[in-house]
Amino acid sequence: MKTVTRKPFSKEILHIEDIESFCSTLIFKLRNDIAKNLQRRGGIVGISGGIDSSVVLALSAKALGSNNVLGIMLPEQDSSNDSKILAEKLAAKFGVNTLVEDITKALDGFNCYKRRDEAISRVIPNFNPKEDKAKIEIKQDITSNLPPAFSITVIKQDDEVISKLLPVKEYLQIVASTNFKQRSRMAMLYYHAERVHYAVIGTPNKHEVEQGFFVKYGDGGADVMPIAQLYKTQVYQLAKHLGVPQEIIDRTPTTDTYTAEQTQEDFFYQMPFKSMDLIWYGWENNYSPQEVGKIMGKSTQEIENIYKNFERKRKTTDYLRMKPIF
């Protein structure tokens, strides 16, 4: 009988030992996907100054040559100014040409901001969109054995913070409105891709894809997703190896979607990336909650609840990953 052995669970289990050869494999695959499978002559990458799009741009430049990659910045009125500065620095580092397409007017045309602000005002009547900042967040602990519910937080100009649980109708309207942002970006990326016969290279990582932290036909709309199999800590490891500027590596990942500062942890993941990566790996590879809990300094019950949370997130977001049914 064949005995299958596997590594005991540890905090180093996701570390890529031979990063050089790992990168070469990703680069070779991306080149092959673009040239042979998709039959395109280059790649378009939407760059935000975030870690994921930076690693994808670096991989694309190495796979296709800098001249065959176009980085597109897609700011809108709520985007942080840092995003553009960092994205420019990144493109310069890898010798990639860039374009800026401000999508604010397109979003205005869709009434994106108006529809979002109407919904926020129904929950917080004294919300003033011209002066106040707003964001959506999950306040429950990830170990709670109940699905998450979202709250709206408004930060008034005088720093007063008002937070309320979002009723379902308003929650859905806010999300549907802000999703215009990702979908408008996707439309613009495909405009440029078709204009020069390139492929759109998507930037979601493994958590975004598998936990459904993306917009269907928005940032989920791309021809190839080279880092969709990678955990966030592995994306950071790649970033260091590929020479992504340190300011980008040091920046806290944000959604850059709402007017108030909002980390991805606040909005969706409910726990730090390092822990989430490891526990997700444990869950995906059937490590017992006891074994994982021991290493992570959590009780077996806490890990069991986190496993349930992961399972629920994947199931709830199946719809996002589904192709049209016919």
Binding site: P147, P148, A149, L165, P167, V168, K315, T316
Partner: peptide
């Protein structure tokens, strides 16, 4: 599921 919870609250 999670959307079910939000609709139940409503």
């Amino acid at each position: 599921d999670s959307m079910g919870l939000l609709f139940l609250i409503e």
